[in-house]
Design a protein around this nucleic acid. Structure first.
Lengths: 142, 142
DNA sequence: CGGGAAAGCGCAACTCAGTTGCATGAACCC
DNA sequence: GGGTTCATGCAACTGAGTTGCGCTTTCCCG
Protein backbone atom coordinates (compact mmCIF):
# COMPACT_ATOMS: atom_id res chain seq x y z
CA UNK A 1 0.00 0.00 0.00
CA UNK A 2 2.72 2.51 1.05
CA UNK A 3 4.58 2.25 -2.22
CA UNK A 4 7.99 0.65 -2.22
CA UNK A 5 9.38 -0.33 1.12
CA UNK A 6 13.13 0.12 1.02
CA UNK A 7 13.81 -2.35 3.78
CA UNK A 8 11.88 -5.14 2.08
CA UNK A 9 13.64 -4.49 -1.21
CA UNK A 10 16.97 -4.96 0.52
CA UNK A 11 15.63 -8.06 2.19
CA UNK A 12 14.48 -9.51 -1.12
CA UNK A 13 17.81 -8.69 -2.74
CA UNK A 14 19.76 -10.33 0.01
CA UNK A 15 17.74 -13.51 -0.22
CA UNK A 16 18.31 -13.60 -3.94
CA UNK A 17 22.01 -12.88 -3.54
CA UNK A 18 22.35 -15.78 -1.14
CA UNK A 19 21.37 -18.24 -3.85
CA UNK A 20 24.51 -17.39 -5.81
CA UNK A 21 22.39 -16.85 -8.91
CA UNK A 22 21.79 -13.66 -10.85
CA UNK A 23 19.90 -10.89 -9.13
CA UNK A 24 17.60 -9.31 -11.70
CA UNK A 25 14.99 -6.60 -11.50
CA UNK A 26 12.02 -8.94 -12.07
CA UNK A 27 13.22 -11.35 -9.42
CA UNK A 28 13.64 -8.62 -6.84
CA UNK A 29 10.27 -7.09 -7.55
CA UNK A 30 8.37 -10.37 -7.49
CA UNK A 31 10.01 -11.65 -4.33
CA UNK A 32 9.42 -8.31 -2.67
CA UNK A 33 5.75 -8.46 -3.57
CA UNK A 34 5.49 -11.95 -2.09
CA UNK A 35 7.27 -10.90 1.08
CA UNK A 36 4.93 -7.98 1.63
CA UNK A 37 1.76 -9.94 0.89
CA UNK A 38 -0.10 -11.46 3.78
CA UNK A 39 -1.16 -14.49 1.79
CA UNK A 40 -0.57 -16.60 -1.26
CA UNK A 41 -0.96 -14.66 -4.51
CA UNK A 42 -2.03 -15.66 -7.99
CA UNK A 43 0.09 -14.46 -10.86
CA UNK A 44 -2.73 -12.03 -11.69
CA UNK A 45 -2.71 -10.55 -8.21
CA UNK A 46 1.04 -10.12 -8.46
CA UNK A 47 0.67 -8.31 -11.78
CA UNK A 48 -1.74 -5.89 -10.16
CA UNK A 49 0.61 -5.35 -7.22
CA UNK A 50 3.52 -4.60 -9.53
CA UNK A 51 1.25 -2.07 -11.15
CA UNK A 52 2.50 0.36 -13.76
CA UNK A 53 5.77 -1.26 -14.72
CA UNK A 54 4.36 -4.74 -15.01
CA UNK A 55 6.45 -7.63 -16.24
CA UNK A 56 5.69 -9.84 -19.14
CA UNK A 57 3.32 -12.66 -18.18
CA UNK A 58 5.83 -15.28 -19.19
CA UNK A 59 8.64 -13.69 -17.21
CA UNK A 60 6.44 -13.65 -14.16
CA UNK A 61 5.71 -17.34 -14.51
CA UNK A 62 9.37 -18.12 -14.96
CA UNK A 63 10.45 -16.02 -12.00
CA UNK A 64 7.87 -17.67 -9.77
CA UNK A 65 8.97 -21.09 -10.92
CA UNK A 66 12.57 -20.20 -10.28
CA UNK A 67 11.80 -18.92 -6.79
CA UNK A 68 10.17 -22.25 -5.98
CA UNK A 69 13.13 -24.24 -7.29
CA UNK A 70 15.50 -22.10 -5.21
CA UNK A 71 13.41 -22.62 -2.11
CA UNK A 72 12.48 -18.95 -1.70
CA UNK A 73 8.79 -19.52 -2.39
CA UNK A 74 6.32 -22.32 -2.63
CA UNK A 75 3.28 -22.87 -4.73
CA UNK A 76 -0.13 -24.17 -3.79
CA UNK A 77 -3.06 -25.11 -5.95
CA UNK A 78 -6.20 -23.23 -5.05
CA UNK A 79 -9.79 -24.31 -5.37
CA UNK A 80 -9.96 -22.56 -8.74
CA UNK A 81 -7.10 -24.56 -10.29
CA UNK A 82 -4.88 -21.50 -10.30
CA UNK A 83 -1.41 -21.51 -8.79
CA UNK A 84 -0.78 -19.32 -5.81
CA UNK A 85 2.64 -18.42 -4.54
CA UNK A 86 3.92 -17.29 -1.17
CA UNK A 87 7.38 -16.47 0.08
CA UNK A 88 8.95 -18.98 2.39
CA UNK A 89 9.93 -17.29 5.59
CA UNK A 90 13.13 -18.65 7.02
CA UNK A 91 11.51 -19.05 10.42
CA UNK A 92 8.32 -20.80 9.50
CA UNK A 93 9.23 -22.71 6.37
CA UNK A 94 6.45 -24.33 4.41
CA UNK A 95 3.12 -23.58 5.97
CA UNK A 96 -0.58 -24.32 5.70
CA UNK A 97 -3.09 -22.07 3.96
CA UNK A 98 -6.62 -20.91 4.48
CA UNK A 99 -8.74 -20.38 1.38
CA UNK A 100 -11.99 -18.43 1.67
CA UNK A 101 -14.79 -20.05 -0.32
CA UNK A 102 -16.52 -16.70 -0.67
CA UNK A 103 -13.91 -14.11 -1.66
CA UNK A 104 -11.25 -16.58 -2.80
CA UNK A 105 -8.50 -14.96 -0.77
CA UNK A 106 -5.75 -17.26 0.47
CA UNK A 107 -4.17 -16.53 3.83
CA UNK A 108 -0.98 -18.10 5.12
CA UNK A 109 -1.32 -19.91 8.43
CA UNK A 110 2.25 -19.20 9.44
CA UNK A 111 1.94 -20.87 12.78
CA UNK A 112 0.88 -24.07 11.09
CA UNK A 113 4.12 -25.38 9.66
CA UNK A 114 3.64 -28.43 7.50
CA UNK A 115 7.21 -29.55 7.96
CA UNK A 116 6.50 -31.05 11.33
CA UNK A 117 3.12 -32.56 10.52
CA UNK A 118 3.11 -36.31 11.02
CA UNK A 119 1.07 -38.20 8.45
CA UNK A 120 1.15 -41.94 8.03
CA UNK A 121 1.81 -43.09 4.48
CA UNK A 122 1.58 -46.69 3.25
CA UNK A 123 4.59 -48.98 3.38
CA UNK A 124 7.08 -48.12 0.64
CA UNK A 125 5.81 -44.60 0.14
CA UNK A 126 8.16 -41.73 0.91
CA UNK A 127 6.79 -38.37 1.98
CA UNK A 128 8.71 -35.32 0.73
CA UNK A 129 6.30 -32.55 1.61
CA UNK A 130 2.79 -31.86 2.73
CA UNK A 131 0.26 -29.42 1.36
CA UNK A 132 -2.51 -28.55 3.76
CA UNK A 133 -5.33 -26.18 2.86
CA UNK A 134 -8.24 -25.28 5.07
CA UNK A 135 -11.33 -24.06 3.22
CA UNK A 136 -14.12 -22.03 4.73
CA UNK A 137 -15.05 -18.43 5.43
CA UNK A 138 -12.54 -15.77 6.30
CA UNK A 139 -13.18 -13.10 8.91
CA UNK A 140 -14.30 -10.51 6.36
CA UNK A 141 -16.82 -12.80 4.70
CA UNK A 142 -18.21 -14.35 7.86
CA UNK B 1 -10.03 -54.73 -15.19
CA UNK B 2 -12.59 -57.56 -14.87
CA UNK B 3 -15.19 -55.74 -16.92
CA UNK B 4 -18.31 -54.61 -15.21
CA UNK B 5 -18.78 -55.65 -11.62
CA UNK B 6 -22.46 -56.20 -11.02
CA UNK B 7 -22.27 -55.62 -7.30
CA UNK B 8 -20.57 -52.26 -7.63
CA UNK B 9 -23.08 -51.15 -10.24
CA UNK B 10 -25.87 -51.87 -7.78
CA UNK B 11 -23.91 -50.08 -5.09
CA UNK B 12 -23.45 -47.02 -7.27
CA UNK B 13 -27.12 -47.03 -8.24
CA UNK B 14 -28.25 -47.23 -4.67
CA UNK B 15 -26.08 -44.31 -3.64
CA UNK B 16 -27.48 -42.26 -6.48
CA UNK B 17 -31.03 -43.32 -5.68
CA UNK B 18 -30.57 -42.18 -2.09
CA UNK B 19 -30.06 -38.59 -3.21
CA UNK B 20 -33.61 -38.45 -4.51
CA UNK B 21 -32.32 -37.12 -7.83
CA UNK B 22 -32.45 -38.74 -11.24
CA UNK B 23 -30.44 -41.88 -11.76
CA UNK B 24 -28.94 -41.70 -15.23
CA UNK B 25 -26.57 -43.95 -17.13
CA UNK B 26 -23.62 -41.52 -17.06
CA UNK B 27 -23.98 -40.95 -13.34
CA UNK B 28 -24.02 -44.66 -12.58
CA UNK B 29 -21.02 -45.38 -14.75
CA UNK B 30 -18.91 -42.54 -13.43
CA UNK B 31 -19.67 -43.25 -9.79
CA UNK B 32 -18.98 -46.91 -10.34
CA UNK B 33 -15.60 -46.09 -11.86
CA UNK B 34 -14.73 -43.92 -8.88
CA UNK B 35 -15.82 -46.59 -6.42
CA UNK B 36 -13.63 -49.21 -8.07
CA UNK B 37 -10.59 -46.97 -8.38
CA UNK B 38 -7.97 -47.11 -5.67
CA UNK B 39 -7.17 -43.42 -5.92
CA UNK B 40 -8.28 -40.06 -7.16
CA UNK B 41 -8.80 -39.96 -10.92
CA UNK B 42 -8.49 -37.19 -13.46
CA UNK B 43 -11.31 -36.79 -15.94
CA UNK B 44 -8.96 -38.24 -18.57
CA UNK B 45 -8.31 -41.35 -16.52
CA UNK B 46 -12.03 -41.80 -16.06
CA UNK B 47 -12.57 -41.52 -19.80
CA UNK B 48 -10.06 -44.30 -20.33
CA UNK B 49 -11.71 -46.46 -17.66
CA UNK B 50 -15.12 -46.02 -19.27
CA UNK B 51 -13.50 -47.18 -22.49
CA UNK B 52 -15.53 -47.94 -25.58
CA UNK B 53 -18.80 -46.23 -24.77
CA UNK B 54 -17.20 -43.08 -23.46
CA UNK B 55 -19.30 -40.10 -22.44
CA UNK B 56 -19.03 -36.63 -23.82
CA UNK B 57 -16.27 -34.64 -22.11
CA UNK B 58 -18.73 -32.03 -20.97
CA UNK B 59 -21.13 -34.56 -19.52
CA UNK B 60 -18.29 -36.10 -17.57
CA UNK B 61 -17.37 -32.75 -16.10
CA UNK B 62 -20.97 -32.07 -15.17
CA UNK B 63 -21.50 -35.47 -13.61
CA UNK B 64 -18.35 -35.12 -11.53
CA UNK B 65 -19.41 -31.69 -10.40
CA UNK B 66 -22.83 -33.00 -9.49
CA UNK B 67 -21.38 -35.90 -7.51
CA UNK B 68 -19.36 -33.42 -5.47
CA UNK B 69 -22.37 -31.23 -4.78
CA UNK B 70 -24.36 -34.27 -3.65
CA UNK B 71 -21.58 -35.37 -1.35
CA UNK B 72 -20.86 -38.61 -3.18
CA UNK B 73 -17.41 -37.57 -4.32
CA UNK B 74 -14.86 -34.92 -3.61
CA UNK B 75 -12.34 -33.15 -5.76
CA UNK B 76 -8.72 -32.32 -5.09
CA UNK B 77 -6.31 -30.19 -7.05
CA UNK B 78 -3.21 -32.06 -8.06
CA UNK B 79 0.28 -30.73 -8.59
CA UNK B 80 -0.46 -30.44 -12.31
CA UNK B 81 -3.44 -28.12 -11.88
CA UNK B 82 -5.82 -30.85 -12.96
CA UNK B 83 -8.83 -31.85 -10.91
CA UNK B 84 -8.92 -35.32 -9.47
CA UNK B 85 -12.01 -36.99 -8.10
CA UNK B 86 -12.57 -39.79 -5.66
CA UNK B 87 -15.71 -41.38 -4.26
CA UNK B 88 -16.49 -40.59 -0.67
CA UNK B 89 -16.80 -43.79 1.26
CA UNK B 90 -19.48 -43.58 3.92
CA UNK B 91 -17.10 -44.95 6.52
CA UNK B 92 -14.08 -42.78 5.94
CA UNK B 93 -15.57 -39.58 4.62
CA UNK B 94 -13.18 -37.00 3.25
CA UNK B 95 -9.64 -38.26 3.33
CA UNK B 96 -6.06 -37.23 2.64
CA UNK B 97 -4.20 -38.03 -0.59
CA UNK B 98 -0.73 -39.06 -1.62
CA UNK B 99 0.55 -37.71 -4.92
CA UNK B 100 3.62 -39.28 -6.48
CA UNK B 101 5.99 -36.66 -7.89
CA UNK B 102 7.34 -39.19 -10.36
CA UNK B 103 4.40 -41.04 -11.91
CA UNK B 104 1.73 -38.52 -10.91
CA UNK B 105 -0.58 -41.16 -9.47
CA UNK B 106 -2.78 -40.07 -6.61
CA UNK B 107 -3.59 -42.58 -3.89
CA UNK B 108 -6.27 -42.15 -1.25
CA UNK B 109 -5.02 -42.36 2.32
CA UNK B 110 -8.30 -43.74 3.62
CA UNK B 111 -7.07 -44.08 7.16
CA UNK B 112 -6.21 -40.41 7.23
CA UNK B 113 -9.59 -38.78 7.57
CA UNK B 114 -9.43 -35.02 7.29
CA UNK B 115 -12.71 -34.57 9.13
CA UNK B 116 -11.10 -35.05 12.49
CA UNK B 117 -7.92 -33.09 11.84
CA UNK B 118 -7.52 -30.18 14.23
CA UNK B 119 -6.04 -27.09 12.64
CA UNK B 120 -5.99 -23.69 14.28
CA UNK B 121 -7.37 -20.87 12.17
CA UNK B 122 -7.22 -17.17 13.01
CA UNK B 123 -9.95 -15.51 15.03
CA UNK B 124 -13.08 -14.96 12.95
CA UNK B 125 -12.19 -17.59 10.37
CA UNK B 126 -14.47 -20.59 10.03
CA UNK B 127 -13.12 -23.91 8.79
CA UNK B 128 -15.47 -25.95 6.62
CA UNK B 129 -13.14 -28.60 5.31
CA UNK B 130 -9.49 -29.52 5.01
CA UNK B 131 -7.53 -30.68 2.01
CA UNK B 132 -4.35 -32.50 2.85
CA UNK B 133 -2.00 -33.83 0.18
CA UNK B 134 1.28 -35.58 0.80
CA UNK B 135 3.75 -35.41 -2.08
CA UNK B 136 6.68 -37.72 -2.56
CA UNK B 137 7.48 -41.07 -4.13
CA UNK B 138 5.05 -43.96 -4.24
CA UNK B 139 6.08 -47.56 -3.66
CA UNK B 140 6.41 -48.31 -7.37
CA UNK B 141 8.63 -45.32 -8.12
CA UNK B 142 10.84 -45.59 -5.04
C1' DC C 1 -48.56 -48.80 -19.59
C1' DG C 2 -48.11 -44.14 -22.11
C1' DG C 3 -47.93 -39.14 -22.40
C1' DG C 4 -45.80 -34.92 -20.95
C1' DA C 5 -42.88 -31.73 -18.07
C1' DA C 6 -38.49 -31.22 -16.15
C1' DA C 7 -33.98 -32.42 -16.01
C1' DG C 8 -29.86 -34.21 -18.13
C1' DC C 9 -27.06 -35.17 -22.37
C1' DG C 10 -24.17 -34.06 -26.39
C1' DC C 11 -22.25 -30.98 -29.72
C1' DA C 12 -19.69 -26.85 -31.04
C1' DA C 13 -17.53 -22.97 -29.92
C1' DC C 14 -15.22 -20.54 -26.39
C1' DT C 15 -12.09 -18.94 -22.26
C1' DC C 16 -8.00 -18.51 -19.93
C1' DA C 17 -3.96 -20.27 -17.05
C1' DG C 18 0.15 -21.89 -18.16
C1' DT C 19 3.96 -23.30 -21.82
C1' DT C 20 7.39 -23.24 -25.71
C1' DG C 21 10.75 -21.32 -29.17
C1' DC C 22 13.53 -17.85 -30.44
C1' DA C 23 15.64 -13.28 -30.95
C1' DT C 24 17.06 -9.40 -27.98
C1' DG C 25 18.87 -7.41 -23.76
C1' DA C 26 20.87 -7.32 -19.06
C1' DA C 27 23.95 -9.35 -15.16
C1' DC C 28 28.26 -10.85 -13.73
C1' DC C 29 33.26 -12.31 -14.16
C1' DC C 30 37.58 -10.77 -15.35
C1' DG D 1 34.86 -1.85 -20.39
C1' DG D 2 34.17 -6.40 -23.15
C1' DG D 3 32.49 -10.80 -23.79
C1' DT D 4 29.94 -14.84 -22.21
C1' DT D 5 26.06 -16.59 -20.20
C1' DC D 6 21.76 -16.41 -18.64
C1' DA D 7 17.23 -13.92 -18.21
C1' DT D 8 13.64 -11.28 -20.54
C1' DG D 9 9.95 -10.30 -23.85
C1' DC D 10 7.18 -11.36 -27.76
C1' DA D 11 4.15 -14.32 -30.38
C1' DA D 12 2.04 -18.35 -31.06
C1' DC D 13 0.44 -22.53 -28.92
C1' DT D 14 -1.70 -26.18 -25.56
C1' DG D 15 -5.17 -28.23 -23.02
C1' DA D 16 -8.35 -28.29 -18.92
C1' DG D 17 -12.52 -26.65 -17.96
C1' DT D 18 -16.95 -23.77 -19.34
C1' DT D 19 -21.14 -21.99 -21.77
C1' DG D 20 -25.25 -21.94 -24.85
C1' DC D 21 -28.60 -24.44 -26.96
C1' DG D 22 -31.32 -28.03 -29.22
C1' DC D 23 -32.31 -32.93 -28.48
C1' DT D 24 -33.04 -37.07 -25.53
C1' DT D 25 -34.04 -39.44 -21.34
C1' DT D 26 -36.01 -39.91 -16.76
C1' DC D 27 -39.76 -40.30 -13.94
C1' DC D 28 -44.25 -38.87 -12.25
C1' DC D 29 -49.12 -39.26 -12.62
C1' DG D 30 -53.10 -40.56 -14.71
Amino acid sequence: MSGVNRKSVADAEERLRSTGERVTVPRVRVLEALLQAGGALTHQEIEVLLGSAALDRVTLYRVLDWLCVKGLAHRMSGGDRVWRFSAIDGQHGRHAHFECRHCGKVTCLDKQSTDELAVNVPRGFRSEGIELTVRGRCAQCA
